[in-house]
Design a binder for these strands. Sequence first.
DNA 1: CTTGTAAATGTTATATTATTACATAGTGTT
DNA 2: AACACTATGTAATAATATAACATTTACAAG
Lengths: 132, 132
Amino acid sequence: MEKQHNLSKNQKIIFDLIDKSRGPMKAYSILFNVQKKGIKAPLQVYRALDKLVEIGKIHKIESRNAFIACQNSSCQISKATAFSICESCENVSEISNSKLSKYLSNFSDNSGMKYNKYNLEFFGLCKKCKSK
Amino acid sequence: MEKQHNLSKNQKIIFDLIDKSRGPMKAYSILFNVQKKGIKAPLQVYRALDKLVEIGKIHKIESRNAFIACQNSSCQISKATAFSICESCENVSEISNSKLSKYLSNFSDNSGMKYNKYNLEFFGLCKKCKSK
DNA sequence: CTTGTAAATGTTATATTATTACATAGTGTT
DNA sequence: AACACTATGTAATAATATAACATTTACAAG
Ligand SMILES: [Zn+2]
Ligand SMILES: [Zn+2]
Ligand SMILES: [Zn+2]
Ligand SMILES: [Zn+2]
């Protein structure tokens, strides 16, 4: 059973915005968009983002400094993420492939390191952009 | 045969610094360290970093906004990178595992997307930090 | 050797992303 | 009520990265 997280006011405002958005959103673009709702300062945005990332409702696309809603009905784990990123149109989608996630979650090498989390970003051209 | 890249003056200064460093270095820490060599502005550092990344002499650790020298005698490709990151001591090392790179380079899904590059970051505790 | 061109450099200013510090308010439990 | 915990508000500042413009260097073609 997945833990229920009741989002606070600011968390909900910001999650709803990101969730409705077509693609990843950047923090200051989020800020601009929620100012009419009373969220005035960067810190209010970053605090909500931190929490939403922590509970897996959104993910950060590290190479873009941007945030996207989880497309897997909230990664229970949020510790195993993979994305595909079009370098032309910047479209991003979350990859949900059980073989891939199994392979990476079980990955280990001889470094003696215990991995408990990973983030993978694939880059390329999406279908649309390829055919231009 | 691997293409020879003759580094320019600034590129060489900055590469040497990163290469000697124990761990990943941040841009402004690099700047601070090369000011005595005449590199005075952020842009000079970022330009050299961009070039060094492009030719695969260094890699950017996206989750840390930091740069590390390639540990694989310069990834010919620099389009297939994997790192392990200790979340306690922040030690980073480049993973060189042919099975993994083969698996990821050949990965494809039904999205119609052609992947030509990936970056993978594993997180966990290194041997040392685990035993504390 | 000179002309053209691409790469690299120098410099100033500015944009973008993220955190520190401190005060206050809400929420649920004992 | 007392407590602990989470969330919020606000101002200031730190850290990361790029834009714009002028100049110089490297090097190949003619
Ligand atoms: Zn997800
Ligand atoms: Zn595209
Ligand atoms: Zn490498
Ligand atoms: Zn460690």
